[in-house]
């Protein structure tokens, strides 16, 4: 049996809004194993964002168990959470969140800046490697404004890879991209997944789910579906099927 990267048991998250208590997650249990490509789906209000925040160690559950790579997150301090995020998770956001007027390589280096164990030389080397993996080795000194949306998201993916995380956590990573570019990005994710990288992809677009190996569907704070995808589509071949753009 593959190693469990994420282990969640009876996880609840409640928010107090004035006098009312909102139950965003009402007892959720699932595990993610190493090498899986999981999409977490759900409409707005389903608890998807709350799930994402907890998975990303940005937020802590009210009750229940959450372990990432064998570490229970529940009682960790803010600083310990920051270290977990730094060492175990690679974040990818819908709006890329790159530092403006800062070169691609410096953007990719950012997470390693907060890891004092990594030397300056190693930082640069690892950032170059990560940019190579996403196919941007020739654009390392470009700033975000000199890159297309797809390229910016590739830089963000490189940034998420640079700390060798146990899991990449993507939040609507294709939400700002056109179909062609989003298929390109998905095919990159599939490539990375083939290399053994665990990916959790939070989205509300059903066609994205067809590229993943497993789909978890949330509704009103519960898991209503959790299935392995038997018919994984290849994003690369989908891309080939798209009509050629007129140039």
């Amino acid at each position: 049996m593959a190693k469990e990267i994420i282990k969640i048991q009876d996880l609840k998250r409640e928010f107090t809004m004035g006098t009312e208590t909102v139950h965003a997650l009402k007892g959720i249990s699932f595990t993610i194993e190493e090498g899986q490509f999981v999409t977490i789906m759900g409409s707005s209000g389903s608890g998807k964002s709350t799930m994402l925040n907890i998975l990303g160690c940005l937020d802590q559950p009210t009750s229940g168990l959450y372990e990432i790579d064998g570490v229970s997150v529940k009682d960790l301090s803010k600083n310990e959470l920051a270290t977990i995020r730094n060492e175990k998770i690679g974040f990818i956001f819908q709006s890329y969140n790159l530092l403006a007027r800062t070169s691609a390589i410096e953007n990719v280096e950012l997470p390693l800046l907060y890891n004092s164990k990594v030397s300056t030389e190693e930082r640069r080397k690892r950032a170059l490697n990560a940019l190579e993996m996403v196919g941007l080795a020739d654009r390392i000194h470009h700033t975000p404004s000199q890159l297309s949306g797809g390229q910016q998201q590739r830089v963000a993916i490189a940034r998420s890879l640079v700390n060798n995380p146990v899991m990449i956590l993507a939040d609507e990573a294709t939400g700002n991209l056109d179909t062609r570019t989003s298929y390109e990005i998905m095919s990159l994710f599939q490539e990375l997944n083939k290399k053994g990288i665990t990916i959790t992809f939070v989205t509300h677009e059903p066609d994205i789910a067809t590229f993943s190996s497993r789909t978890v569907v949330l509704k009103d704070g519960h898991i209503i579906k959790d299935y392995m995808n038997t018919n994984i589509q290849s994003a690369a071949s989908e891309l080939a099927k798209l009509p050629k753009e007129d140039h």
């Binding site: 990303g56 940005l58 803010k78 600083n79 920051a82 270290t83 995020r85 730094n86 060492e87 974040f91 956001f93 969140n97 530092l99 950012l110 997470p111 907060y114 890891n115 940034r159 700390n163």
Partner: peptide, 11 residues
């Protein structure tokens, strides 16, 4: 927010 997400501590 980004710096914190990728591991920047408050300090």
């Amino acid at each position: 927010g980004l710096r914190m997400a990728v591991g920047g501590k408050g300090s």
